[in-house]
């Protein structure tokens, strides 16, 4: 599986999770500040709120429900941050990924699909109706956004003629893919929100379900689940840069700085949009996903394929 081009940069195994954690914290702090400002509280003080909440969760004792399937429950919760970290293994920062696999796009997709199993287990294992309904809500959302999401990834891969994420970034020397395939980019952003059950797609952990899949996990378990969710959003934002935004390309600054800046901008856009857009019901989103997003992104893939065959890109 690992040939000369697939060299693994082991130093990144320390750096990448640290960067991912920093971005995940930024997403949490950003949304906390937004909520605080909306309610009239000072926004700057809210920047430390996620850290305080995390510390509180670490100190709190776990509670459990009789009949919970502890093994599957823990596996499901742990899989959320694990999937996020595994997904960023293939995301290059300034042209260098930890492992720029020849099938990097498929790898990224496989890791995010692990969340389907993880979230269902996190909901089911708790032996609570709220969790179970939350887990199923996540699956319904997944069934609605996954095919458009896969075709958005495919469109970028077709445009570059490669499944290697580094090649896709390198193929955008002349023109960024966001200009060639804007519909695929929009669909990617929508599915990035949905896969990390971020507002407006936060019904799996919705307040109408007393927290849904996150209702029963408490203490450190809850911290792992929520931190993993933020890390998944950060991972999806980081992946948008090599797929659609030219990777590390940009004037003056070095490549790694542009990669980090663009990832931060996409993450900020996602967090901002999550706070602005009204909640999306997953039963209605099912029809939107299949009737609107899927044909849209298929047409986009067709257009890009024609461009490639005609030699325009």
């Amino acid at each position: 599986m690992i040939d000369a081009d697939d060299a693994v940069h082991w130093w990144g195994l320390v750096l990448a999770p640290a960067l991912l954690a920093a971005y995940a914290y930024a997403a949490a702090a950003g949304s906390a500040a937004r909520t605080a400002r909306a309610s009239g509280a000072p926004a700057a003080a809210a920047l430390a709120a996620p850290a305080r909440e995390a510390a509180g969760l670490l100190l709190r004792r776990r509670r459990t429900v009789p009949g919970a399937d502890t093994l599957l429950w823990r596996v499901g919760i742990a899989s959320v941050p694990v999937a996020a970290v595994m997904a960023v293994l293939v995301v290059p920062v300034g042209g260098r990924a930890i492992a720029d696999l020849s099938i990097g796009v498929v790898w990224f997709n496989a890791m995010e699909v692990l969340l389907w199993g993880g979230m269902w287990l996190a909901g089911w294992g708790a032996n609570s109706v709220w969790g179970l309904v939350g887990g199923y809500r996540y699956l319904i959302q997944g069934l609605s956004h996954e095919l458009p999401h896969m075709f958005a990834l495919t469109t970028a891969a077709v445009g570059a003629g490669s499944l290697r994420v580094g090649d896709i970034a390198a193929a955008q020397q002349d023109v960024w893919f966001v200009l060639v395939m804007p519909a695929a980019f929009v669909v990617y952003l929508v599915s990035a929100l949905a896969m990390s059950f971020w507002p407006p797609f936060d019904q799996p952990v919705g307040r109408d379900l007393s927290g849904g899949a996150a209702a029963e996990p408490s203490g450190p378990d809850r911290l792992v689940l929520l931190a993993g969710r933020h890390a998944m959003l950060a991972a999806a934002a980081a992946m948008a840069v090599p797929l659609f935004l030219g990777g590390g390309a940009g004037p003056l600054l070095p490549g790694w700085a542009w990669s980090l800046l663009k990832a931060a901008a996409v993450l900020a856009l996602l967090v901002w949009a999550g706070g602005r857009v009204p909640a999306v019901r997953m039963d209605r989103f099912a029809e939107v996903g299949w009737v609107v997003l899927l044909p849209l992104v298929l047409l986009q893939a067709l257009a890009v394929s024609v461009f490639v065959v005609a030699g325009w890109m």
């Binding site: 496989a110 699909v113 692990l114 389907w116 269902w120 089911w124 069934l143 996954e146």
Partner: peptide, 8 residues
């Protein structure tokens, strides 16, 4: 993974 979860 997708198949098993859809089975659920």
């Amino acid at each position: 993974t997708m198949e098993m979860v859809v089975m659920a």
